[in-house]
């Protein structure tokens, strides 16, 4: 059942040039073909961890492994790594540079040295997927934040990496757009077996779209494991400045404060419905 680890860190310690310790002894495995959520408050080190997976932030001590190999920080090694590990940054303005949307998305593909028809096919497909097809010829600067975010995602998706690192992909998107992007990432992972790591604050999204989760606080990993078992460690979540999904919170309050006798807990609406239906059935049986 356990898929092999595609990315692994061993006692990883990373320090920014100004002396800030971003990661402080991180041991973490990312499983191939799964969606892993990276959770934690502001400044917990989520972005830093993603950067170190991509070879941008180099370890002070410890190491990062891709597959079974430690990362090779030579120019050639990094190039090879980055063809397989794509990253979408938290701030889209840091990533978009070309003078039109289409050109920006084409940049990575041109660097891969693909033939032109293949490049065009992939650009069109990526734009269609993230819903920016009608912006193709627009310059980048007048786009809205959410639109820029989608374009940045398309530029990396088009390169079809085997691992996709997403830094807060849904922050700043409208609710439907956020769900759309996450659903779409989920589908991509299911259909093409892509490994996805998402740094996020959006705890509601985690039980819906993620297989595993990792909770970080001040550069350290507090929890790593299945999403379902993460919600059993509520104290850890609170310690990391997070909270339960609203549904789980509601069910918790109903059973602890209001004396409901619930047959289990749930994180999502569909989970809660199951529980409530179960409760109704029990009552009907008891009532008879």
């Amino acid at each position: 059942m356990a898929s092999p680890d595609i990315l692994r860190t061993e006692a990883l310690r990373c320090v920014w040039p100004d002396g800030t310790v971003a990661l402080d002894g991180v041991d973490l495995s990312i499983r191939a073909g799964e969606v892993t959520a990276l959770l934690g408050g502001n400044g917990a080190g989520k972005s830093s961890l993603l950067l170190s997976f991509n070879g941008i932030l180099k370890p002070r001590s410890g190491r990062v492994l891709f597959g079974e190999e430690p990362l090779d920080y030579s120019a050639k090694g990094l190039k090879a790594l980055r063809q397989k590990v794509g990253i979408v940054f938290q701030n889209p303005d840091a990533q978009l540079f070309a003078s039109s949307v289409y050109e920006d998305i084409s940049f990575g593909l041109c660097n891969l040295g693909l033939p032109e028809p293949e490049t065009r096919r992939r650009i069109d497909a990526a734009m269609e997927l993230v819903g920016v097809a009608e912006l193709a010829r627009k310059p980048v600067h007048p786009l809205s934040f959410g639109q820029k975010k989608r374009v940045a995602l398309a530029g990396v998706l088009a390169m079809e990496p085997s691992v996709l690192l997403l830094d807060e992909p849904t922050a700043g998107l409208d609710p439907q757009g956020a769900d759309g992007i996450m659903r779409f990432i989920r589908e991509l992972q299911r259909s093409s077996g892509m490994t996805v790591v998402v740094a996020t604050h959006d705890i509601e999204m985690v039980p819906l779209f993620c297989d595993r989760a990792c909770v970080m606080d001040r550069g350290q990993v507090l929890f790593e494991g299945e999403v379902t078992s993460m919600f059993e460690h509520r104290d850890l979540l609170r310690q990391a400045g997070l909270r339960l999904p609203r549904i789980a919170h509601l069910l918790e309050i109903l059973s602890t404060k209001d004396g409901f006798d619930l047959p289990g807990t749930a994180m999502t609406i569909s989970g809660a419905r199951k529980i409530l239906k179960l409760m109704k059935e029990e009552q009907e049986i008891n009532g008879k």
Partner: peptide, 19 residues
């Protein structure tokens, strides 16, 4: 920006495809 470009395979020449 430089880092982001490197992540997409930048090697000193900006190559893009016009629409």
């Amino acid at each position: 920006l430089y880092v982001a470009m490197e992540c997409r395979g930048y090697d000193g020449a900006i190559r893009v495809l016009a629409p």
